[in-house]
């Protein structure tokens, strides 16, 4: 891969910015939180040790690397946990544990591409342009995946009922 070697401080800045969303992304492959955290740190350690050079837009590389690492790990079948018993990796600010579990479950039911777009855009703060660049797709494709993902989440998550229910209380 052609790219550039980053300074350690730059790599640590990348970790601070993306690690939360990347770990949530790793958890969405049905890995428990501590294992997902290990997977993400493993990717960053590899970069720190000079084992990988990053492209100009590193987010796409990071998501790909985490995805591959998680899929390899999941293939081993180790420490895959059911969502109901696993720790929450998306925390509601109220907090609402039921909503947290419902959202996590809804996310795991999305396709990989749709889930990736939603996590990048909603929780990693990337624009759809940046998402398109990171996923090597066109802006239209990224926007389309995002729209479908929101529709599916609404269905899986039952958000109308949830919010209406809150309003009635």
């Amino acid at each position: 891969m052609t790219g550039k070697q980053l300074e350690e401080s730059e790599i640590r800045s990348l970790y601070e910015r993306h690690a939360g969303a990347l770990t949530a992304y790793a958890c969405s492959f049905r890995l428990d939180f501590s294992l997902a955290q290990d997977m993400v740190q493993q990717v960053f350690f590899k970069i720190l040790k000079g084992g990988a050079s990053l492209p100009d837009n590193p987010a796409g590389y990071l998501y790909r690397a985490v995805r591959n690492t998680c899929l390899n790990r999941r293939r081993d079948g180790s420490r895959e946990v059911p969502l109901e018993r696993g720790t929450t990796w998306l925390l509601h600010r109220t907090p609402d544990h039921e909503a947290e579990i419902a959202l996590q479950s809804a996310l795991t039911n999305l396709s990989d591409e749709q889930r990736e777009v939603v996590i990048m855009h909603i929780w990693d703060g990337m624009t759809l342009d940046e998402v398109a660049s990171a996923t090597s797709t066109s802006l239209n494709t990224a926007a389309s995946r995002y729209r479908y993902a929101l529709d599916h989440l609404r269905k899986f998550f039952g958000v109308e009922k949830r919010i209406e229910g809150k309003g009635e209380q």
Binding site: R12, R93, I122
Partner: peptide, 22 residues
């Protein structure tokens, strides 16, 4: 609920932060 409202609801959730990179 339109997309904007749904997005803002989703943003009420935040990813759990992992440990700092050792």
């Amino acid at each position: 609920m339109d997309d904007k409202q749904f997005e803002s609801y989703l943003r009420e959730f935040e990813p759990r932060q992992p440990h700092p990179l050792p």
